[in-house]
């Protein structure tokens, strides 16, 4: 009886996890710019992973596998925000740079075109060239 319950529960968690995961991946394709795609990737990284690993934990029962799954979960939860932040931070050094005013997306590539001095010019050109290559 309890076996049936555990199996049913773990199947339910797996199904929910798949749903969230596919939704996140669809968002990754559908959303219009880099930062919004990052939010969609967050869905697959947090809740979807959590649900699937929890379902596996239910199937593992009390064993070493349970502990290892817990470690995997803990590790993904600790590294995923660090990787997201590193990604957003790196994008700040590119033409995708965000401006802190509330505005649509990240289409404002160069913040102060009026103040472009001789020192800043080559850097801006390098950036533009970089954007073309990417």
């Amino acid at each position: 009886m309890s076996d049936l319950l555990v199996d049913g529960l773990s199947g339910l968690l797996l199904a929910l996890g798949c749903l969230f995961m596919v939704s996140g991946a669809v968002g990754l394709l559908r959303f219009p710019d880099f930062y919004t795609r990052m939010h969609a990737a967050g869905v697959t990284d947090t809740l979807a992973t959590f649900l699937i690993v929890c379902a596996l934990m239910l199937q593992a029962g009390w064993s070493l596998a349970l502990f290892k799954l817990g470690l995997i979960l803990l590790f993904i939860f600790f590294t995923s925000p660090a990787a997201s932040h590193a990604l957003a931070k790196a994008a700040q050094h590119s033409p995708l740079r965000l401006e802190p005013v509330a505005e649509q997306g990240a289409d404002e590539a160069f913040p102060e075109p009026g103040q472009g001095t001789e020192i800043a010019e080559p850097a801006l050109e390098a950036d533009a060239a970089n954007a073309d290559r990417a």
């Binding site: 990052m38 990737a41 697959t44 699937i52 799954l69 790196a90 994008a91």
Partner: peptide
């Protein structure tokens, strides 16, 4: 952009971990 690609590769890698576990 290059950042979209890195983001996609990151998602791919995380899913690989889950795939191996499953």
């Amino acid at each position: 952009t290059i950042y979209d690609r890195i983001l996609a590769v990151n998602v791919f890698g995380t899913k690989t971990v889950v795939l191996i576990a499953v």
